[in-house]
Design a protein around this nucleic acid. Sequence first.
DNA 1: CTGAAAGCGCTTACAG
DNA 2: CTGAAAGCGCTTACAG
Lengths: 350, 350
Amino acid sequence: MSTITRNKSSKPRLTVKDLARDLGMSVSTVSRAFHAEAVIAHDTRDLVLKRAREIGYTPNPFARSLITKRTRIVGVVVADITNPFYPEVLTRLTRALRDIDMNVMLVAADRSGEIDEALRLLLNYQPDLAIILAATLPSEAAQECRKAGTPVIFFNRLSADGHAFGVSCDNVLGGRSIADFLIDSGHRHLAYIAALPDASTNVARQGGFRERAVERGLATPPVIEAGQFSYHAGYQAAQKLRDLDRMPDGVFCANDILAVGFLDGVRRELGLGVPEDISIVGFDDIEMAHWPSHGLTTVQQPIEQMLEATISLAKDLAANSSQEPIVQLIPPGAVIERATTRRRLYDQDA
Amino acid sequence: MSTITRNKSSKPRLTVKDLARDLGMSVSTVSRAFHAEAVIAHDTRDLVLKRAREIGYTPNPFARSLITKRTRIVGVVVADITNPFYPEVLTRLTRALRDIDMNVMLVAADRSGEIDEALRLLLNYQPDLAIILAATLPSEAAQECRKAGTPVIFFNRLSADGHAFGVSCDNVLGGRSIADFLIDSGHRHLAYIAALPDASTNVARQGGFRERAVERGLATPPVIEAGQFSYHAGYQAAQKLRDLDRMPDGVFCANDILAVGFLDGVRRELGLGVPEDISIVGFDDIEMAHWPSHGLTTVQQPIEQMLEATISLAKDLAANSSQEPIVQLIPPGAVIERATTRRRLYDQDA
DNA sequence: CTGAAAGCGCTTACAG
DNA sequence: CTGAAAGCGCTTACAG
């Protein structure tokens, strides 16, 4: 019928000019209607906004940010996608940011080398903010962002240098609560299954846990290095239980996915009963933790509050980008007792 | 020391003008150096590119796309994040797109209502392409994109109307292979555990499986409606096994995460042995499928090839956006035999 | 409170 | 092959 047109050009997008002409106003006035702070008659704004909705006009964000220097884009960097905690955080974060009109540009990386190029590409888009959602990522990524003038929030992780913002669970406190929980329920021989040695979450949980055990009068809990936050690392770590001087009765694994692997390893490779022979506690409370086959005792991450803190930080940074970097530590939830732990009675004092 | 400056403005980004001045060339020439198709002396281009790298200039993508009408942004819509298949696809897809210089803008949704607003926001950015990574999403989302002139690719899913592009595993064939596999290994009483009733993946797998069973001379396998692609749906579906006229000896679950739940349910709630009493097969081959505690027999999704097809489609669409929508069906991998199935011998012909 | 004008950082016909 | 100029779709001082 009609002549063949390029797909893209078939429906030229409406511009301010179109809307201005349609309303018999100037382009300036129309533009002002879309900015809350702009001075414009209340009625005029209503008129413009109404008509815009009718004809389907919406300002071109590219043209806009060319002038405002703000993009409403937040770059999110993820790795560790094997840990189910992150997909969940990612989607919830994306939704929360959407609610304040921010869009997520995603960067995914496996290896640390890969991240660099990806990050550079991302920074071209001048995101208003970068959020790092990966326990394992080198902090150089953050420096890269800072050089580009993009503030960085580390989520569920502390930055090595103190130059970035952070929102994290108080993992030291989390580790301490788990020590208390295990000791209160009669465990006397604790151990810690460590994940990535230099991940701040791992370090803090390990530190809090062992410190508290000693405070409560136990021997310093030995550490088994699993090396990763993963099922397979946990599964294999179970084998190393044999190398310990004494079989522990209560084990804290650096996070849930590690704990699930450890749990399976203990049962299948060591033939031990959980919780009969040994209690296992994780950290995160991922969905899998309450699957009937696991019933993992764990500590809930305060995701909702961590998300809130992140969003409010994002807003602040939008308003005033030259803030002093601060780290917000949010207390973890209580220990959720499920089927991988049980009370033990050795002697009267238990 | 120095006067306080706004963070953002502290390092004004270099522009073409800066680079042009630095090189004593015109802005036009410098600009041309960054476009492969532009006519420019070979030496000039090298000079420009080299200097750009040195001083750290990179073209502003916003200004660029204001003119080119191409954004190098692909909007990715995800839901079903409980299915571990999707996070994996998402990260791999993001990396693959990055390799062709495309950036992912993410839209996450739970409910179908939520998606609409999110999509609108996304479409403001005029993505060159939208990819829908969700089994459950209503096709209206696709229409929305089309209205905005953005081509849509459905990944691992067919669109209801034939107006979108699609890259999917040949799920009918997958269902058929599983029927063959079970029958060949001696199973005679099959059943299908269905997930979302109107997800194309579910429908195709179910259709292929049952059709093939009949072709091979078995009774039409009964269907248990689990309703969702999730662990919990699978777990609960196990209970419904009792309602069947006859206990099946071989069960195909719509996907892996459903199968894992079903497996646990069968073992824990029904007290049946897997594979002794009943064989279970999944679909996807997610990482969890080869965890020792599951050892799920399943069919591998040809993710690598699906990704390749998607990327090549993305390139084609970039070059010529008015193509006829086509759906690419990629044959699934072979059945991977693990610990949830075993050979059965009823009589001589098995 | 509104409008005309300049300009954000690019690309791309148009001349030369 | 290169440069001067117009223009992409906006926002924002500057007048009025």
